[in-house]
């Protein structure tokens, strides 16, 4: 009888461990996809920023500033990314605030695309931050720490976004 009970307990424990591991794996996957999505959108924004820098909207000085910020954002590591992107947001914000005379069709299209992209980036950031906080929370559970269920998956880093540039 005792033997059966112990066997049952072991089976239960094994099930729970594999269940927890699956759960963590799934969460890490969620972080990866939400980051891939956000990263893609941010890359597009940097590309648009460079196009704006080359267009009629910007004077040479702000073109330089914008190009510099865009390159910095593109080359930043994951940890420094949000800060670099905030720099790009700032540069775009200054430019758009000061240039009220956007007239050409191409320029208007650029600005509209940027505006739509900003909306999407806000949503993507919300999705990513949620996935990251959730994962960090579950990683902290004692069972996952003791049994190292997260394996070699890197600790996800959160992304701070000072969103309202446009």
């Amino acid at each position: 009888m005792k033997f059966i009970l112990i066997l049952f307990a072991l089976a239960l424990a094994a099930w729970y461990l594999s269940y927890s591991a699956t759960r963590l794996d799934r969460l890490h996957h969620r972080v990866e996809t939400s980051w891939a999505n956000l990263d893609g959108l941010l890359q597009r924004r940097a590309a648009i920023a460079i196009e704006i820098a080359r267009s009629e909207i910007s004077d040479p000085a702000s073109a330089m500033l914008l190009t510099f910020a865009a390159h910095q954002a593109r080359e930043a590591s994951v940890r420094d990314r949000s800060q670099a992107e905030t720099g790009l947001s700032g540069a775009l914000g200054i430019l758009l605030e000061t240039s009220s005379h956007i007239s050409g069709e191409i320029e208007k299209d650029l600005i509209r695309e940027l505006r739509e992209l900003t909306e999407k980036i806000k949503m993507a950031v919300a999705m990513h931050v949620d996935a990251v906080t959730r994962t960090q929370l579950v990683r902290k559970k004692w069972i996952n720490r003791i049994f190292r269920l997260a394996g070699t998956a890197p600790e996800p880093v959160t992304y701070e976004f000072e969103g309202d540039v446009l």
Partner: peptide, 19 residues
């Protein structure tokens, strides 16, 4: 639909879960 697209990034469609 924008939200769908964001959820679909990197995904290979919906399957039954491993459990």
């Amino acid at each position: 639909y924008d939200v769908y697209q964001m959820a679909m990034v990197g995904g290979n469609g919906v399957t039954l879960s491993s459990e």
